[in-house]
Simulated assay, not measured.
Amino acid sequence: MTHDMLVYLSKTVGLIWLMGFFVIVVIRAYSPSRRDAHERAARSILEEPQRDE
């Protein structure tokens, strides 16, 4: 396998892999079934600490 062929394959496979990964991330991020989890995560930093009295 020549260097040129290896570079070509790595660029092609890398591009396809990254595009697939991006599509999976976008689908997961905008999935309606994950909305509650995203809302909980967004509001988790806003919760007031519980006081033991």
Rank of each mutant, 00 (worst) to 15 (best):
D52Y: 12
A41H: 08
D4K: 03
E47R: 09
D36R: 02
I27C: 15
M1L: 10
T2F: 04
R34N: 09
I24P: 00
R28M: 14
L46D: 15
M1N: 15
S10H: 03
I24R: 02
M5A: 07
S33C: 09
G14A: 00
V26N: 02
V7I: 08
P32V: 04
R34L: 14
E39N: 03
R28G: 09
H38Y: 09
M5Q: 13
I27E: 03
Y8C: 05
L15K: 06
P32I: 06
Y8V: 10
L9M: 13
V23E: 08
Y30M: 09
K11C: 01
W17Y: 13
I45V: 15
V13K: 04
I24G: 14
I45Y: 12
E48H: 13
V26W: 00
L6D: 06
I16L: 11
D52A: 12
D52K: 08
R43G: 13
E39H: 02
V23A: 12
R43L: 15
L18F: 13
M5S: 14
G20P: 00
W17E: 10
V25D: 04
A37L: 05
R51Q: 11
L6S: 08
V23R: 04
S31Y: 12
A37Q: 15
G14L: 00
I45N: 15
H38G: 05
S31D: 07
K11G: 03
M19E: 07
R28N: 12
A41C: 08
H3N: 11
A41N: 11
V13W: 01
A41E: 10
R34S: 08
V13G: 02
A42P: 01
A42D: 15
R43V: 06
Q50W: 08
I24C: 09
L18C: 09
L18E: 05
G14H: 00
H38E: 10
L15C: 12
S10Q: 12
E39D: 15
R51P: 00
L46A: 10
V7Q: 08
M19H: 04
R43C: 09
Y8Q: 08
Y8S: 14
V23Q: 09
L18R: 07
E53L: 08
E39P: 00
V13Y: 04
E53V: 14
A41T: 06
I16F: 06
A37E: 10
I24V: 13
V23S: 13
P49A: 04
S10T: 13
D36S: 05
I24L: 13
R34H: 12
I27S: 05
K11D: 04
P32M: 01
V13P: 00
D52L: 14
T2C: 11
K11W: 01
E53D: 12
S44V: 08
I24K: 09
H3D: 07
S10V: 03
I24T: 12
A37R: 11
L15G: 14
F21I: 07
P32Q: 01
E39C: 02
S31F: 05
A42E: 14
K11M: 11
V25L: 10
M19N: 14
R43M: 03
A29W: 04
W17Q: 10
E53K: 10
L46Y: 10
R35N: 07
R43D: 11
R51D: 06
D4T: 10
A42H: 11
R35P: 00
L6P: 00
S44E: 06
